[in-house]
Every structure is written in C-alpha cells, then in structure tokens.
Design a protein around this nucleic acid. Structure first.
Lengths: 342, 342
DNA sequence: CTGAAAGCGCTTACAG
DNA sequence: CTGAAAGCGCTTACAG
C-alpha cells in the first residue's frame, strides 16, 4: 500500500505473507519451506528460513491449528490444589509434552462439578487433542465424567474409566522394596504402621508387606499391622502402642508414609530407642521436606511421580496419533531411597 | 473414499454453518445471534440459540481467536515443581481466570534457561494475551527475561522487572499479626526463630517483629533473634539453645515457618515445657499438613496464596484490556489463624 | 432486521 | 521446482 518507511520498527504483525514477499516467493512456497514439506530447491528453502529468522517470524499457532485440525494442546484436569503429589506429576506432564511441541492447559477445579464441566467445555472449544486427568486420590474419581468425550483421555493418579489408560505407581512393588530392604539388613520382627483402611493403597501395601514376610519365612508380629491416620501423630501413637505391649518389640518399621515414619522415629527417640541401631525405619513417598529432615534422615520409597507424569503425556499423545493402546492400569515402578534410618 | 454409512451419527463437525442452515439464517446472523451482538428480532436470536443448543454446537475457539485477535489464554510460567507455595497460587490463577473465559497454559521449566525460552516462544506462537510468572522464591528471578515481551506480564511470588506488577504476600503485616497476637495474650519475652538471613522474607519478618515489640514497650530478649534453617531440626535446636542459656526463658515464640514451629514445640515438649500454658508458639505459612498435625495444633499466619493467584489473574487481564495500572509491588494481607498453640 | 463478502494467518491439494 | 486457489471456522464492517 504505502511506501515502507525505513525507520518503521517491525511492529507490524509479522506474517508468512511478509516473509514470502521478503523472500520473493509465494506464500505456499514459504509455508512449505518453513515446514520442511513439499519439494523445492534447497537454496530456496534455506533462503526462506533465513529470512524468516531475520524477520523474527513466529507462525500463528491458531491459524496453523485451524487448518491442520490439530491444536497440539492438551487439557490437564486436576482437583488437587494443595497436595504434594500432583505438582510433580504436572511438571512431568508439561516437560514430557513440550518436547513434542504440545502445550498444556491447566484446569484446576477443586471438587466442583459445575466448574469441572466449564473447564471441559472450554477444552473442547479450544480443540485440545486430548485430556489428562489427575487427582488427589487413586480411589476417588474426578467430579466429572470424561468417558464419552470425542478425544482421548488418560488418567494419572486418579480413578479413570475402564476403557481408558490409567497410570499409577506400583504400590505393591514399592512396598515390597521397602520390606525386602528391612529383611535384607537382617530385621526379623517388622511391623507396618499405615493409614486408614479406606484407602486402596493401604491394603495394597499391607498385602505386599505380609507377602514379603511370608516369603522370607517371617511372621507378621502380633498386632504388627496398625492402620490409623496419615499423620505424625498416628506414627507416634502407634509406636507407643507397640512398645507398651508385652513381648518382643519390633526391630523394623515399614511406615505408610513419611509423616507416619517421622512421628514413629520421634516416639522412638523419646523412648530412648536408637534408630537405626535398635530399629530400622522405612517410610513411603520420599517427600523430601519430611524425609530429609527426619532425624536421622529417612529411608523411604520414591514413587517417581514426575516420570509418571511424563509417561502419561506420552501415552496420551500416542492415542492422539492414533496408535493402538491397551486400556487398563499401567503401574510404574517405585524406587527405594536409602538414607540413615535403616 | 468409501460410501458414507447411513447410520453414522452426527459425527460431522458441527459448525456455525450447519447451525445457520438449520435455523434458516445466514452465517453472519447466526454469529451475531450467538454472540449477542448486532440487531435482530429477539425471536430470531432465540431461535438460533435454541437450535445451536439442540445441535450441541461448540464454537471453535481457534477460529474465533484468529479473527478477534484475542486468544483468551494466558501462559503460566513456573520454576517450582515441588513446592507447596506454587500449587495454591496456580489454582487461584486458574479459578480467577476461568470466570472470565480465560484458559491457562502451564509452563513448568525448572531452572532451565533453554526450556524456559522454548515455553515463552510457544506461548507467543499461541498468541496468549499475557503471561503470569510465578516461582519458588521472592528474591530469585525466573531463568528467563520477560521484560521485553509484546504482551503484559504479571509476577506472583517471584521477582519481576521494575516496570511490571508483582504480587506478594504482605510479609511484614503478617509478622506483625503474629507478634501482636503474642503480645495481646500477655506474652512479654518473645523470641523469633527464623530461616536463613539470605532470604528477603527473613529480614522483613524480623524487622516487623522487632518493631511490634518496641511499640509494645518490650525488648527483643537477649539472643532472642535466631536465624538458621527452614527446618524442624533448626526449630528444635534453637529451643535447646534458648533454654540452655542462663536467665529468664521466653514465654512466646514467633517462628519463621510452620516446620520450625513444629520442631520448637517438639523440643519444648521434650523439655517438659507446656505449650501453650508456659510458652505460646506462632508459626508462619499455615501449611495445613504441618500446622494441623503439630501437638497442639499450631497458631500460624496464612498467606492467602490462592487469593493472591486470583488477584494476579485479574491484574493481568486488566492490563490485557488496556486499563491503566501502576507498576510495582502489590502486597496482599496475611491472616492470623488461631489454633491451640497460643 | 438480515445477508453477501472480505478477511484473520496459515496449509494443502492441484496445476503448470 | 513454484504458485494460484480454495479452505479451516469464525467475525465484522458494509450494504440493502
């Protein structure tokens, strides 16, 4: 239209049209050059790319998605706004997907049904390629039904529908690692202090605990399986209970989480029982902030949540890309982290 | 390719064209009807809306954004993948923005410069309307410079550039609340056990602590300001130090975070000092999982992080909408939560 | 009160 | 090897 003012900064929107003009090719050619598609002289391709770079061209993802029918974006639904489990999972998802050029919409919805629906609708309108649902608890579903969406859905750390893939830590394997470790270092009277029976993970871990003992030819000590709260207080109380009972005391404790372990170790110290000399203690979660501050620092199980998030992202993209997949649970291995409490 | 099977459900993409056809109006009219713009018979508008609803029409946000030049999406950059502070802030941002129809891209980038740049580029290509940066520490910047972006940037809980708005909890006011509370309940020898001097918040809170004491005509006790770690261990050790010194012991403790308070209370209990009868203890953070499990439950300061996130979202949208704003720090009030430790 | 047309910024057959 | 044209799904002047 007008003569181009020489000092005008590149404030005008930089589009592929301008790149094409500057490179003296058609828009079609410019597009193909930049996307490494089509066929053309290598020289042309290089020139277009160079000029695009010089002009600071940034393709408009909106336009690109509109025509390619792929948004390269996914929705991440969560009802956990406080927990320590969700953040590493989310970070893993984000990290795993950005490598593929996929961005993640954060949808935080507490347990609000209505809000959840609003988020789902927003995601659909934004044409996300898929959805990852993550939550606070494995045995509690999100406040919205995702099973009839026109896009793939993957669940991480929360209960999903049966025809979908759900990623979870391998609780049993993790518990086995913990108890096997106690056995391996020579402990023979190993008690298990854990959370409320209503949690799925509690019975999973307790089952693995009993099984490892049996395989090692050991017994679950009298009153050796204590279910209570996920709290330090409960860990403390459980030790009081164990140590005030008659008979031989435990020489090993497998605790359902790091807080319980922390409380148990506190109680042992108050009783003058030495950890790890008299009793070895193993926790669960590897919640750094607790585990590393326990005196002595806590041996515990890491659930590799960031890796779990990454895998969830990859799973989803596989489905988005139409690859075959098998619905059901995928259990990812946990890892023993040895510190000084064992 | 193949003949279309007759029983195919309404899998065809539902677009505004189909809605318009069904309602027997032009696409332009359909658009205006659905967006409550333009002028037309109320009856027409209602009919279009009804039919759109019946047809389960979902406008394609990509197309809409492409023409309206507003994506109604923002980027959320964070380098905190584990902390307990960031998740509530993020939840607040998401909650505050979804009300305005704005979605949030999660960009998790650890402290990786390169990754950060990739995320920023992705956000720009996706035409986000603005960016919120949040981080682990108030006195540490993100690994990427956001000060010359063509879109507004707001900082929450992390150090931002001077020409931008940064939202932070009012640390001093929070500390004042804590110490004033101790004074109000009759405590006279109040010590302050806090974190490393290298943290900005440590000096902010310590300053407020000293000031409140002075205003109340009280002195900072000999050796009454103890700087150490953000840990239970340090809280424990600090109490040991205070109680093994000669002279009158403190009757009040203001702790720099809930973990320190937790450790201090543990130490007091081990010494047979009763909380709150002999000593009142106040923490900072209201980290439920620690504060509610301390014995006795901890009086502490809540930083209202979710509200802070919400405000950050609103601030950003105000800037996106071109409203005037004043660069600089916005301090949001903290809140005293009284439990049984005081 | 309603509609035809142009256009947002890109990609993709198709033709030359 | 390159380009003209159509189109993704919507909105917005503009005309009638």
């Amino acid at each position: 239209m007008e003569a181009i003012l020489s000092d005008r900064p590149s404030k005008e929107k930089m589009t592929i049209v301008r790149v094409a003009k500057a490179a003296d090719v058609s828009v079609a050619t410019a597009s193909k050059a930049l996307n490494n598609t089509g066929r053309m002289k290598q020289e042309t391709r290089d020139r277009v790319k160079r000029i695009a770079r010089e002009l600071n061209f940034r393709p408009n993802a909106l336009a690109r998605s509109l025509v390619s029918r792929r948004s390269f974006a996914v929705g991440l639904l969560t009802n956990d706004t406080y927990g320590r489990f969700t953040l590493p999972v989310m970070a893993g998802i984000s990290a795993g997907l950005i490598d593929q050029g996929v961005s993640v919409f954060l949808c935080s919805m507490d347990d609000n049904r209505e809000l959840a629906q609003i988020h789902v609708d927003a995601m659909l309108e934004r044409q996300v390629d898929g959805i990852i649902a993550t939550g606070r608890r494995i045995d509690t579903p999100l406040p919205v039904d995702l099973s009839h969406l026109p896009i793939p859905v993957v669940y991480a750390l929360t209960k999903g529908s049966d025809d979908a893939v759900t990623l979870l830590p391998d609780e049993k394997q993790g518990a086995r690692e913990a108890v096997s470790h106690l056995v391996a270092i020579g402990r023979r009277r190993i008690a298990h202090i854990t959370g409320p029976a209503s949690f799925q993970v509690v019975s999973d871990r307790a089952g693995a605990y009993a099984q490892v003992l049996q395989e090692a030819g050991l017994d679950v000590p009298q009153q050796g399986l204590l279910q209570g709260q996920w709290s330090e207080l409960w860990g403390h109380e459980a030790v009081d209970r164990l140590w005030s009972a008659p008979g031989a005391k435990p020489d090993g404790l497998f605790c359902g989480n790091d807080q319980i372990a922390r409380g148990a170790i506190d109680a042992l110290r108050e009783r003058g029982v030495d950890v790890p000399a008299d009793v070895s203690v193993v926790g669960f979660d590897n919640w750094e902030i607790v585990a590393a501050q326990t005196r002595p620092p806590l041996t515990t199980i890491d659930m590799n949540l960031k890796e779990l998030g990454r895998q969830a992202g990859l799973q989803l993209m596989r489905q988005v890309n139409g690859e075959a997949f098998e619905p059901g649970l995928i259990r990812l291995p946990c890892e023993l982290v040895v510190r000084q409490s064992s």
